[in-house]
Amino acid sequence: MTNNQQLKYMNLTLKIWRQEDSKAKGRMVDYKVTEISEHMSFLEMMDVLNEQLVNKGEDPVAFDHDCREGICGMCSMYINGEAHGPDRGVTTCQLHMRMFKDGDTITIEPFRATAFPVIKDLVVDRSSFERIQQAGGYISVNTSGNTQDANSIPISKHAADEAMDAAMCIGCGACVASCKNSSAMLFVGAKVSQYALLPQGQVEAADRVRNMVAQMDLEGFGNCTNTGACEIECPKGISLENIARMNRELMKASI
């Protein structure tokens, strides 16, 4: 048996959201792609489609991507009704075509939220996340040369692990896209937690949570109703515990 015979190829129908620009009215458009290898990533399949479109002189489908290894958080598609598609713990670039079957129809939409307006086709503006980060997602450290050695501050293994888990958030926005309320609380909870758990971040903890939550509300994200969809769809497995911690931090900061 040759390698070619072992490979599985599939023909697919794609239903893709096309929208010329942020002001245009979008619509779903059907495309056919053929001979897609099961070993391709989803974005490679999109590349094949775009190559077809360019060869036909049509406008290729715009979609966000950068590192293509699950780190940057740029890819942002809503595939068959789920952020980053049907696989768990992966971004769209890590989603493989073996998750689909020959003859499947795949629906591809942009992440939907008022705070994530569509720029073009599947590309959305996630700068609202940047503004939330700017509101307090940092620590103010004097780096003039008198900075204390970080290793001189003891931190428990448990706190360090939890802070690291929260810091795994890549800000892709799958939590917002999956949440029926378009709530950003998993993202903000993770950012608040990664600092609140460490002594370096605790100095500004009260101001940080107040300012980041205020910015989150200002951006027009919805409220968390604890459905848990964000945690399930998060490619980095950020826990709901971070939302509970953010709520505690805000209560503490408000008393």
């Binding site: 779903m28 068959n80 629906t107 939409e109 029926k180 399930i232």
Partner: peptide, 10 residues
């Protein structure tokens, strides 16, 4: 969403 698979995660 045109297609939303809510039962997959909640």
């Amino acid at each position: 969403y045109v297609k939303n698979n809510g039962s997959a995660n909640s």
